[in-house]
């Protein structure tokens, strides 16, 4: 049993542990109280946030005194679940589309049209579509309710990815259906539905897992790129930055990691550790998923060789 344990399983276990902790932890422990300043009597020293890492705040606090460790643990579930839902929805829809409209995706006119997705980044499309809906005037309410915001964001993020992904799946299916035994079963009168289920899907499945892993990292990157432009998954809260409204402060409603990175980006030159905490967490997540995908690829290659 232990011999079969590869990097993929370790990564999967790690991810589920993070997810589990992130769900349980905020239920058991409430958010630490914000101290706006600290005064030590003996040394007559006044400290204001951001506090550095200490016993009380494991990863320090941000400029408002918010505990970063709590924010990171709380935000993990939103990050993983959002990216997971988007990836899953994209995979399912594109799989169905790629299988049913295989011929269409191979058509030169249609694939020429889809080519525009290869030259226009997804982040740009999502920003163009969503930014008029998400951002609102200062001191007014968001146009959409919280649930509406979430649903429309998920729909757009899924929709923007299904066409290119569908093309990849259709191409893979096309190359798989070039095998001789498929031609044979066609001659013997098997319907195209049966060929898809019986002959193409078993070969498709491992490839789909690898594709899903890549999609997951792509979605995470996309989320970060959107967050840089203050488009946070789960909604944005806009507050005034200064007395004359020279600039706005954008903050995430959920403590989702990409949103935290964007929120603390201003601290990059002032207190680098504040922004580096979510950046490192996010990097480790992507690294974990990438390593898992690579190990899947390797085991898949080995199986092909034997």
């Amino acid at each position: 049993m232990l011999g079969k344990l590869n990097t993929f399983h370790v990564g999967l276990m790690l991810l589920s542990i993070i997810l589990f902790t992130s769900i349980i932890f905020p239920i058991l422990i409430s958010e630490p109280v914000i101290h706006h300043f600290r005064y030590t009597e003996e040394t007559r020293q006044l400290i204001v946030p951001p506090y550095g890492p200490s016993q009380e705040y494991w990863l320090g606090t941000d400029r408002n005194g918010k505990d970063l460790f709590y924010a990171i643990v709380d935000g993990a579930k939103y990050t993983i679940v959002f990216a997971g839902i988007i990836t899953l929805a994209r995979m399912i829809i594109s799989l169905i589309m790629g299988m049913v409209f295989k011929r269409l995706f191979m058509n030169s006119w249609w694939s020429g049209l889809i080519q525009s997705f290869q030259y226009i980044p997804q982040s740009l499309i999502v920003l163009l579509v969503l930014s008029p809906l998400m951002f609102y005037e200062l001191r007014s309410d968001s146009v959409l309710s919280y649930a509406e915001t979430l649903v429309i964001q998920l729909i757009v993020l899924v929709a923007v990815g299904i066409l290119p992904l569908g093309k990849i799946i259709a191409e893979t299916a096309e190359s798989l259906s070039g095998f001789q035994y498929i031609t044979c079963s066609k001659h013997m009168g098997a319907s195209s539905f049966q060929i898809t289920i019986r002959h193409i899907m078993p070969h498709m499945c491992p490839r789909l897992f690898i594709l899903a892993g890549r999609q997951f990292t792509q979605v995470l990157t996309l989320m970060l790129h959107l967050a840089i432009y203050h488009l946070f998954i789960g909604g944005v809260k806009i507050t005034s930055g200064q007395e004359h409204d020279q600039f706005n402060n954008y903050s995430t409603i959920s403590n989702e990691w990409t949103g935290l990175i964007s929120m603390y980006h201003r601290e990059l030159m002032l207190e680098p550790f504040v922004v580096m905490v979510p950046v490192v967490a996010y990097t480790l997540l992507i690294l974990c998923v990438n390593v898992m995908t690579k190990s899947l690829e390797k085991s898949f290659d080995k199986r092909l060789l034997h």
């Binding site: 020429g112 049209l113 889809i114 080519q115 525009s116 997705f117 030259y119 226009i120 163009l128």
Partner: peptide
């Protein structure tokens, strides 16, 4: 086709 695709995206 690329140009048409981009126009379709810009109208999205």
């Amino acid at each position: 086709l690329l140009a048409v695709g981009i126009i379709l995206l810009a109208a999205a």
